[in-house]
Structure formats: structure tokens, C-alpha cells
Design a protein around this nucleic acid. Structure first.
Lengths: 350, 350
DNA sequence: TTGTATGCGTTATCAG
DNA sequence: CTGATAACGCATACAA
């Protein structure tokens, strides 16, 4: 940081702290026009003559006027803020998505209001109530758990963008990632490396994401003429701990595997630890594949082969979609297809 | 999720979507009192007689009235929202802190407004401008980069809680973690295990956190009568990648180490990969210690010995502090002391 | 203790 | 194209 930037910030702070808030009315007075005219220029809500326009713009610049979003919200009904419901604000996956949302929303003048639903439908409903009471202009729900019906109902009064499900409704846009294909790709990768005894650590089957990944796993097995066996799948809960537990069970089951596909990276990390504890080397004795491509997957030992889920882009696209909805347009954007990222935790069966 | 909860949420959505917004005035009419009386009960701003009070409360319940925060903000100057400036909304460390903030703020009726400063003083200043323009009631700055002067100036017009520095001022509360002691503890741990050639991967020395951790490292060496050598420290940037690079340099330097202390976990992860790549086993041939105790540190192979930094509590405490400031009180809360978490990446020198 | 009147800073609806 | 004027929903002096 340069001295210049330091003092710049400091001076600005000083100026802001001392100056009384400058209002639209003050701008109008200074530019010798009515408040309405100023408002019109601000919102491009009507054409204003050249001279008045420049006068107002000059006054705005001189006074350093910034419109008050609170007053705007009251008068115009728009708060320029978007509610974002995540499940866990502190998960690496959601973090990236939130950053993507922020990156897209800010330039458009909108601010995100983040709340976390904690994987719980009721909490989620409360969050939405809160956001509505705060008069957000629209809501993005990331991987929500609310029933489709509820979403459709809410969409009647507020633009909604949801991810992690397929859903068609007015004023609502659904963005879904192809989890089936991801699951298929990961499994196929292991098959192509010569593996035939491939265990699967699933997530909560109630959750569509998890169910789809499992379906992808089964499809790949079938495609390779490998009979699916229920003993090969252990249910986890998308947390590291559950991955470790699953590996323990798998190893104790008497079945002998040469590869494990964990349906998210966090469980793959847990599985990795479980294998390490039992002295099973990855990838020499066991190939391990995850799902999500969390930033940290690049730095595990060994780096994790996984399915890239475009969290950041997901956020960007969701934000763009809500912006479209707000503009009265119909979004058409889609999420990128799943990609297999081959790293060092999977290797050819020798 | 039960069917009960599903339908509950759905019904609520339906109800909300159809009902027109109910205002304070409607409540007043129904309860046969004046709007001011309702307002008084809502804000406990004056004592109200028993019967009227119950009448109003009943009306509120029957109508499902929720005060409009936007109108409140305009009229009362309070928006019940707190700006939170983080550096990177998607870092594991900040994620936990944000969750702590959310957990403390929500029950008090406040909503956090998260923005990320991207480790850049100017961006941070812009964020604060934005938050001010949105009329937040207070601001929490997590590990900010703005000069003390700027913060003090801002605090004149808005309650401020800052972390990661020591600072005394009116309407401002600083919460600092003892990074020096943390650095000392980690190094001392390695010394006690018999290590004497201990490398250090530092952060940006411009940042107080990083400087303090380095100071702790040096203090522990001195205490153990080990001469500090500049060649032992490699500068990183708190990212995984830089940890890996640092290890490469360290290993290529010709010096021979038996232990590495990375001044944050992310760099320790990178270092771990660097060591893995070169076939150096942890902890048998090299002990590795990190700093932060990120959630994922528990699941690296081997699990990482580190200094626990209470990110979640940090968030909670910061939120509590801003609440105190808002209430006109002087916060007294402190952060817990650093704790060494011994796991499996460090071992006695044989 | 309670009600009335006014204002918060904008946008929106009118006339002109 | 422009300017009064009335909301927006609530809090708060002020008066009773």
C-alpha cells in the first residue's frame, strides 16, 4: 500500500465524517431546478433538456451527492438489494458462489444480503420472511430445501432464482448443475483406469444433488457392465467426518475395493484421512476421486482428482439471472457442463 | 425433512404472496389506538398502559404485522443493519467469522451486510462508503488494511469495531488476537520436540498479523538460545501456492531443516504438497506446523499441528461489541488466548 | 399515559 | 419538458 492511498482514504473519511448528508433537495436548489428534475436525471425516467441536465450533474459532483437508498426504498419500492439464501455461509463451496454473486451484483448497483439456511427448510423459510420484510428486490436461493410449491408461491410476489433443481414458473428461474453427468464422469474415469471394484460414498439421498450423483455412478457402472452392489455404497453427510467413517465401514466390510468415489470433496478428504490412518496409500493401493473441486483440493496430498463444479460461475450466473428477471427479461443463461479434473489421487490399476 | 415442515413453509409462502403489506397504521386502527402508541410498544420507547398494550399486541399477532425496516430507517435513522467488511468472503477463516457474526446479530434483530475488501485499502474505503450510503448502524471491519487515522475519523460518525489491530478511540472498539503469542507457542512446540533448525514461512510483513507471528517465532528461538538466521525465513502471501514455493526455495537453499512453521494453515497446506512432491515425509523427516486451525486442517494427511485461532468466536465477539457500542455502552470483551493444537504433522526429532 | 402533527429523502402522479 | 404535491411507513417532538 502506498502512502498516497493511505492518505486518500484518511482524507475521505475525514470529509465524510464532518459533512452533513447532502440531499437531493440541496442538489435541486443549487442547480436551480425542482427536485423532480434531479430525480429524473438520476433515474433516467424522462428526458431532460441539455442545460438543466448539465447544471444538475455539476451540482451533484460539487456536492458529492449520493442518493439515499433507504429513502429510495420507501418511495420507489426498490431497495437495490438482493437477498441471497445459502446453506452455510462458511462452506468453501458457498464462499466461492457468494463471491461470484457479489462480483456481478455490485457493478449493477445492487447489494447482496446474505443469510444462511443451515440446510433446514424452516430456517430457510424464516430467512425468506426476513428478506421480504427488508424489502429486497429479489432473492437467490442456493441449493435450497424448500418444496417447489413454496418457491412458486413466493415467486408470485418477488423475482426468484434458485439453484440445484429444475423448475419452471413465472418470475422464477432455476439453474441446475448436471450432477448426474458429473457422477458418471468420475466413475467412468475410474473404470477407464481399469478399476472394477469401485466404492461410492453418497450424500443424503433426500437431496437431489446427492441422488443424481449416485445415479451417475450407477449409470457408469452399468455402461461398463459392472453389476451394481448396494454394499459398495456407504452413506455420508457431505462432511469430512462422514467420509472417514464411511471408509472405515467400507474397509471393514470384507469387500475389497481398488477405488473410492466420494460424492463431494469434503468427504473425500475424510476418506483420505481414513485411508492414511489404516496405511492404505493413495493412489498406489486405492484411487480416490471427489466431487466439487474445492480450492483446497489442489493442495491435498496427493492432489485430488475431482469433478469441477463451477461455484464462482454459479454465483455469477445466478446474479445475472436475477438481474434479467428484475429487468423484465427472461433469463436464458446456463451453467457450464461438469468437467473431470484429473490429478494425482487416481491412477491406473496395476 | 418431514412432510409437516414442507407444507408449513408452502402455506406460509402462499399466505405471504397474496396478502398486501400490513402497516403500523392498520394495527393502530384495529387496536383502537394511535399509531404512536403502537410505535412506542414496538420500540419500548415509553410505558404504555396494560389494556392498550395487550390490545396492540393482539392486533399485531392477528394481522401478522412486521415493521418495515426501510421506513424505520428513514424515519428513525436506524436501519438495524450492520456492515461487515471482510477481505475475502470465500476464505475459510472469514467464513467462520461471518457465521459467528450472523449468529450473534440475528437474535438481536440486526442483519449483517457483508462486503469484501479484497485486501486492498482503496476497495475497503469504497466498501465503507457504500455501507454508509446504505445507512448501516455500525460497521465491523475484519482485519482491515485502512490506516488507523481513517478508522478514527469514520468512527466519529458511526460505531466501529475493528479486528487485527490495537486502537483506542471513542465510538471504536479494537479486538486483537495475540499473534505474537501464537507464533511463539508454535515455535516453542517444535523446540520442545528437539528441533533446532526451524524454517519459517512468513506472510506479508506489511500486515501486522504476519509481523507479529514472525516476532513470536524469533522470540521462541531466542528463548531457546537458537540464533535467528534470515535464510530460515521465506516470505509467502498467505496462499497455498506461496507455501509450496517457499518450501521449494527452502529445500533448494542448501540449509537443512527438520521443521517448518508456516504462519498460516493455507501456506502449510502448500508446504505439505511441496514436501510430498519431493518425497519428504511428514512428520518423519520434517515436522510441519501451521497457524489458524482451519476446519480442513483436521483432515489433511497427516492432520496438521497448528495454532487455534477462534474465528467463530471472533465473529461473535465482534458482533457483541458493536451491539454494546450501539447501546451506548463500552465493550470490554476480549478474544480468547491462542492455543496450540498438537496433531500429527509434528513429531519428536529422532 | 396518549394522541396529533411533522419530517425522514425519494419517487410518482398529476397538472401545466 | 417541468414543477408542485402527495405518498411511502414509521418515529418523534410537542401538546394534551
Amino acid at each position: 500500500m502506498t502512502d498516497k492511498s493511505r492518505s486518500g482514504a484518511s482524507e475521505r473519511a475525514q470529509a465524510l465524517a464532518s459533512s452533513a448528508p447532502v440531499t437531493l433537495e440541496m442538489v435541486a436548489k443549487r442547480a436551480q431546478v425542482s427536485p423532480s428534475t434531479v430525480s429524473r436525471i438520476l433515474n433516467r425516467t424522462a428526458t431532460v433538456s441539455g442545460p438543466k441536465k448539465t447544471a444538475v450533474e455539476q451540482a451533484i459532483a460539487e456536492l458529492g451527492f449520493v442518493p439515499n437508498p433507504v429513502a429510495r426504498g420507501l418511495a420507489g419500492g426498490r431497495t437495490l438489494s438482493i437477498g441471497v439464501v445459502t446453506q452455510a455461509i462458511d462452506s468453501p463451496f458457498y464462499g466461492a458462489a457468494l463471491r461470484g454473486i457479489e462480483a456481478k451484483l455490485n457493478p449493477a448497483g445492487y447489494s447482496p444480503l446474505f443469510v444462511s439456511g443451515q440446510w433446514h427448510a424452516n430456517t430457510e423459510a424464516r430467512c425468506i420472511d426476513m428478506l421480504r420484510s427488508r424489502r429486497v428486490d429479489g432473492i437467490i436461493i442456493l441449493m435450497g430445501r424448500l418444496p417447489d410449491q413454496a418457491l412458486k408461491a413466493w415467486a408470485k410476489s418477488l423475482p426468484l432464482v434458485v439453484t440445484g433443481r429444475d423448475l419452471q414458473a413465472n418470475n422464477l428461474y432455476a439453474l441446475n448443475f448436471n450432477n448426474f453427468e458429473g457422477g458418471r464422469l468420475a466413475t467412468q474415469h475410474l473404470v477407464e483406469l481399469g478399476h472394477r471394484r469401485i466404492a461410492f460414498i453418497s450424500g443424503d439421498p433426500e437431496h437431489p444433488d446427492a441422488a443424481e450423483r449416485l445415479r451417475g455412478y450407477r449409470a457408469a457402472l452399468e455402461q461398463a457392465h459392472i453389476a451394481f452392489r448396494p454394499e459398495w455404497v456407504q452413506q455420508g453427510e457431505y462432511q469430512e467426518q462422514s467420509g472417514q467413517v464411511a471408509v472405515d465401514r467400507l474397509l471393514a466390510s470384507g469387500e475389497s475395493f481398488t477405488a473410492i468415489f466420494a460424492s463431494n470433496d469434503q468427504m473425500a478428504f475424510g476418506a483420505g484421512l481414513g485411508l492414511y490412518r489404516r496405511g492404505v496409500r493413495v493412489p498406489q493401493e486405492m484411487s480416490l476421486v471427489g466431487f466439487d473441486d474445492l480450492p483446497s483440493s489442489l493442495y491435498t496430498t496427493p492432489p485430488l482428482t475431482t469433478i469441477h463444479q463451477p461455484a464462482y460461475e454459479l454465483g455469477q450466473v445466478a446474479a445475472q439471472a436475477i438481474l434479467e428477471l428484475l429487468g423484465g427479461r427472461v433469463p436464458t443463461m446456463q451453467l457450464p457442463a461438469p468437467r473431470l479434473i484429473v490429478r494425482e489421487s487416481s491412477s491406473r490399476l496395476s
